[in-house]
Simulated assay, not measured.
Amino acid sequence: MFSQAPSPDLSAIIPMCNAAPTVGKVVESFLDVPGHRVEVVVVDDGSTDDSVAVVQALARDEVRLVRLEGNHGAGYARNVGFDQAHGRHAIFFDADDELHPEVIAEAVDALDATDADVAMMPYTYRRGWTSDHTGMNAFDDVVWKHYLRDERRRLVRLSDVPRLLGFSNYPWNKVLRTDRFRRTGLRFSETQVHNDILGHWMTLLDARSILLLDDPVCTHIVGDGGGNLSHRMGRERLALFDALDETYDTLERRPELRNRYSHHYWDFVLRSSAWALDRLAPEVVDAGRQRLQQHLLRINLADFMRIRERRDPSLADRIVRRSLV
């Protein structure tokens, strides 16, 4: 009889669309993770450049290429890749960022040594192809330092660290247990932009325990130009409110969690929408304000009263002001 090959320790799921200059290095970085078996699932989301050829040229058994018909967005591609992942753990990564392989190895080891469902780590930024690195954005930096308390690692529950729900909803700063999140139905939105909000919230809400590791896992490359989806501020940016609606739909189906974390959710809504509204093209601003108002009016009245009376009265005032604009 033939023995079945052991499962990989980690599946790296990488959506790809026109990433020929960068995707090869990203894949090779995962194959360089020390001490662990890694499979890389690259999901091509309708590339029209040489991205597919770059991945195929690697000619590695650990790399699987899944090709989609047309362009569906990174969220859809992540969902397809997760369905096909074989690893005990998984990470969702972008095709144009920089991985720190030794931190991935540390995260897998730490998950194996604890009962945590997900390991979460900080990140750094780099603009374009310069050598200048900066730390996390201001909100993330404050929250992270508050919860780590000068420790290198902490094993916590979400109720201990609820402000992580409002963390930038990047998918690549978390390594998660595949079986656990298959059972809970983890998925990403299928909007073209902001598709990682739902994945971020579902990951933290469904984690029975969370391991915080104070080593940056990724350098996020911030492009200099405006071609990237993250920089588009026309009507397509209104997909933010589709992603928020889908996330809130998930919370409404789980009223206990909606109640417990409602103030964190609505604070996140106001911060993320303010960021988008300040950058929208002038001809789209009114539509954006209307979508925000419609979303705010979905708030559960009992949740609002708890926010007003006990949890965060100033947040309640902000909700009212934005609802009446």
Rank of each mutant, 00 (worst) to 15 (best):
M1Q: 06
S3K: 11
S7C: 01
P8F: 04
L10G: 06
I14Q: 08
P15Y: 13
C17Y: 13
N18G: 14
V23K: 13
G24Q: 12
E28C: 15
S29H: 13
G35V: 06
R37H: 10
E39Y: 05
D44Q: 03
A57R: 13
L58V: 07
L58R: 04
R60T: 15
D61Y: 11
D61C: 10
D61G: 13
E62N: 08
V63K: 03
L65N: 05
V66F: 08
L68R: 15
N71K: 14
N71E: 10
G73I: 06
A74K: 15
Y76D: 09
A77K: 03
A77M: 01
A77E: 00
G81A: 06
A85Y: 00
F93N: 05
A105K: 06
A107G: 03
V108M: 09
D109M: 09
L111V: 08
T114E: 11
A116S: 10
D117S: 03
V118Y: 06
M120R: 11
M121S: 02
T124R: 08
W129N: 14
W129T: 15
S131A: 13
H133M: 12
M136F: 07
V143C: 10
K145A: 15
R149H: 09
R153Q: 15
R154F: 05
L155Y: 07
V156T: 14
S159A: 11
D160W: 11
D160C: 10
P162Y: 07
L164P: 00
G166C: 10
S168E: 10
S168K: 09
W172N: 15
K174Y: 10
L176Y: 12
T178Y: 04
F181P: 01
R182V: 06
T184Y: 04
G185D: 05
L186N: 00
S189L: 00
V193Y: 01
H194R: 04
N195Y: 08
D196P: 12
I197A: 00
W201P: 10
M202C: 03
T203K: 04
L205E: 01
R208T: 11
R208A: 10
R208Y: 07
L211E: 14
L213D: 02
L213Q: 00
C218P: 09
I221Q: 09
G223H: 07
G223I: 11
G225E: 14
S230I: 03
M233Q: 12
G234M: 01
G234T: 02
R237S: 01
A239M: 05
D242C: 10
D249G: 12
T250Y: 07
T250N: 06
R253C: 14
R258G: 13
Y261M: 11
S262P: 09
D267I: 00
D267P: 00
L270Y: 12
L270Q: 12
W275C: 05
W275F: 06
A281F: 02
A281Q: 04
A281L: 05
V284G: 01
R289K: 12
Q290P: 02
L292Y: 02
R298Q: 08
N300G: 09
A302T: 04
R306S: 00
P313D: 11
R318H: 12
I319E: 03
R321Q: 08
